[in-house]
Design a protein around this nucleic acid. Structure first.
Length: 270
DNA sequence: GCCGGATGGTAAG
DNA sequence: TTACCCTCCGGCG
């Protein structure tokens, strides 16, 4: 389930449980054997998330770069770690905790300085420190308006905003009442501000809860986000053909930026 | 048991 | 635009 809230959650968890300690690194699957050998026994200094990218700094020159992609996962094992499955690309372990990485799009070691090439192109990340300031919001607005594309496509472009995926783009556009096919350059200041503020709020909630819940709890009869049932967590994502939770209009679905997007034609007028 | 899609991204045609 | 990579899981027979 990898959008930005997932990487930031992992960065926190791994920083807390593995940081400051000597790590046992291995590649049970065998596809990262050399990298794991270079990290084995190193002390983990810090873990940081930049959009969907994770960077692990050690007391060694190389930096571990992980991108989960669509299907990558980190499984956490508290206490004695079980024997790793054959699909585990990388296990990072200390006494009492192990993190098993499967199916990542990227798992590589970067030479000193190479992290810049990963981080520099990224747009502002709504979950990074400083995201609440005016500078980050203005940077988002600048990058969004610079491009002559539909706002639905723009939100998936990691050089415009980092960490947004297919769920949050659909949900945030619904929450702001903006049709995904609106040209990004046609949005007014209030709409751009709404997008940024809503991205920050929703990704933060996802980070806190560990799952994506964008519905206002009272609208589905729940008392808090944490209590919203799994099948009522979102307004429009993957709900094409079903009635809008707000107004009952049939939710539309089509393709935008090579991915399926959904929107309510009434709540999100063109 | 097989097929296809999924919260992602790139590279080739 | 299409193909492809990575892994798992649900739907369908």
């Amino acid at each position: 389930m990898p959008e930005g809230h997932t990487t930031h959650r992992l960065a926190r968890q791994h920083g807390a449980r593995l940081g400051g300690r000597a790590i046992a690194a291995s590649s049970p699957q065998g596809r990262f054997t050399e990298g794991a050998a270079l990290l084995d026994g190193a002390r983990l200094e810090s873990v940081s998330a930049h959009g969907k990218h994770l960077l692990y700094a050690f007391d060694r020159p190389h930096v571990l770069h992980v991108h989960l992609g669509l299907i990558g996962k980190f499984a956490a094992h508290e206490g004695p770690a079980p024997a790793p499955g054959t699909g585990v690309r990388l296990r990072l372990a200390v006494e009492g905790f192990a993190a098993d990485l499967t199916g990542p799009m990227v798992c590589e070691l970067l030479a000193p300085g190479e992290e810049r090439a990963v981080i520099e192109p990224l747009g502002p990340d709504p979950l990074r420190r400083g995201a609440g300031g005016s500078r980050a919001r203005e940077e988002f607005a600048r990058r969004l308006r610079r491009r002559q594309v539909a706002v639905g496509a723009a939100l998936l472009d990691q050089t415009i905003v980092a960490g947004v995926g297919n769920v949050y783009r659909a949900e945030v556009l619904f929450l702001c009442g903006i049709h995904p096919d609106r040209p990004a350059g046609s949005l007014d200041d209030a709409q751009v501000a709404c997008l940024w503020d809503t991205l920050r709020a929703e990704l933060s909630a996802g980070l806190r809860l560990g799952r994506i819940v964008t519905v206002v709890p009272s609208e589905v009869g729940a008392r808090s986000r944490a209590r919203v049932p799994d099948d009522e967590r979102v307004y429009v994502y993957r709900r094409g053909g079903e009635p809008c939770r707000r107004c009952g209009t049939t939710v539309a679905a089509w393709t935008s930026a090579q991915r399926t997007i959904s929107a309510c034609p009434t709540c999100q007028p063109r």
